[in-house]
Design a protein around this nucleic acid. Sequence first.
RNA 1: GCGCCUGUAGCUCAGGUGGAUAGAGCACCGACCUUCUAAGUCGGCGGUCGCAGGUUCGACUCCUGCCAGGCGCGCCA
Length: 561
Amino acid sequence: MKQPLEDLLRSTLKNLAGELFPATALPSGALLERSRDPAHGDFASHVALTLAKSAGKNPRALAQTIVAALPQSALVAKVEIAGPGFINFFLSASAYHAELQRILQSGANYGRNHLGEGQTVGVEFVSANPTGPLHVGHGRNAAIGDCLSRLLAAAGWKVQREFYYNDAGVQINNLALSVQARVRGLAPGDSGWPEDGYRGDYILDVARAYLAGESVTVQGHSVSGARNPDDLDAIRAFAVTYLRREQDLDLQAFDVHFDVYFLESSLYTDGKVDETVRQLVAHGHTYEQDGALWLRSTDFGDDKDRVMRKSDGSYTYFVPDVAYHLCKWQRGYHKAITVLGSDHHGSLARVRAGLQALDCGIPAGYPDYMLYQMVTVMRAGTEVKISKRAGDYVTLRDLIDEVGRDATRYFLVARKGDSQLTFDIDLARSRSNENPVYYIQYAHARIASVFRQLAEKGLTWDADNGQRNLARLTESHEQALMVNLSRFPELVELAARNLEPHLIAHYLRELANDFHTYYDAHTFIVEDAALRDARLTLVGATRQVLQNGLRLLGVSAPESM
RNA sequence: GCGCCUGUAGCUCAGGUGGAUAGAGCACCGACCUUCUAAGUCGGCGGUCGCAGGUUCGACUCCUGCCAGGCGCGCCA
């Protein structure tokens, strides 16, 4: 709804450019914004204020000229100039009626756009080390990554969800030693227990399964416990597979699924790490010092040079990271997004620097990152500590079991990534009006109930009749609802463009509020068939948008509660 | 010390790339179920947008400097 109006205004301004103001002064960004105050119409433009100086006219006079040049449009009922030079657009009732029709005709597709133009974007998220169950922080990552993927898909991208397993590093060795210690009957604190070993009880579970010769399968890959306490390689392979399966089950419970599982170890076996190092050396961006090989990453915006190959001959972690991102690029992900906890913020610059140093045409900002801050968990007013090695922490599975998948997803995605998140278990559990998830779902359930009541009364909704009688929707509640429904596509676009899934969560809260207000103020199933069908058309459109929005969050839209 | 992020109502948070009188929810006070689910609605209370400067027609938004908190600054990942 906004776009056609924006186009109208822009083309008008282009016609005026050159005479009134230099064409270069025309802002490339948005010309319109939603008015806050209904008295200011539906959309407002401050373009006259922006252009006043370069036009050498006062803003109100400039606004006059612009308004006079605007062509007639069925969308617009009235245009006013207000305040210092705002141009306020009042949309026609028929514009909103057409939008309701669009919602019902588009159905699940309403709100989609073509920003991505069908190009591929790789969204990497979770990427937890297979060294233990997923905790709440991974949950935030999973909720953001999945919601982002849904948003980008809605914005016309071809999305590949990808999980990167760090299955080749020091932590994995630590895991293997911890399991081996448990296999030998040691407990944390005993002499012989590995330093910095993983202390959680789940390590004992892995050890027992290994000794019992259990067979575990994940993503088509099977390993059986070899029972031999001395075979560290066998223990490592078993432990990794076992814990990958555990994580996989957690993610399934969260309704998060991936298209690609990428193993760090494959970068070594396929020679991609060596190849990456060769290229970096060949392009002259490396040097040897103190027995180590360094990348001159300061040439590419990093704040210090980084060791690539340690003096013991092994690579530092960021080398496979660079190889991995090169691989993403080569696989055709010309846009890539990594969802990452901001505690890893420091690694961005060196990965990007490494990619630039390859001189292979990867653009400077590659890849994009969506960073999020830490999660703390509160229960009964006190903080629950999250420490994997101490073994005392809230797993994602615990949360899902305790508060439900819908509430968990909503709470983890409803906050801006920039700010720290406190997950209040008691609030998320509560089935009360404090809980926004239920508030939104309740709106949907109420609508479903309305249509059930309709059937029970032996009536049906004549959508065509409703469409013909939308002029009957004159109540302020109906106006407000129509306005907010029409905002949905703008929100999807904005959230996808800025990688801000929380906008959808907040929008749905507002939309649900508009509906509940309307529901309490007016009866939908009335005698007058024309009015009844018109109201049901509005309510049906609301149901559709609630469904579409909840789907973007991966939260269910129940028929009854 | 340096880098990134945060600071908005008592609490939890929004605030579409500088716009008109700063918004929700919870909490608190007071109303509303013979009516499509009260998991709801309506009203009231509540603010020097961390502080101080600057940029301009105009700043919660941009710049600088402080204050407070979080994260990061390894030949760890």
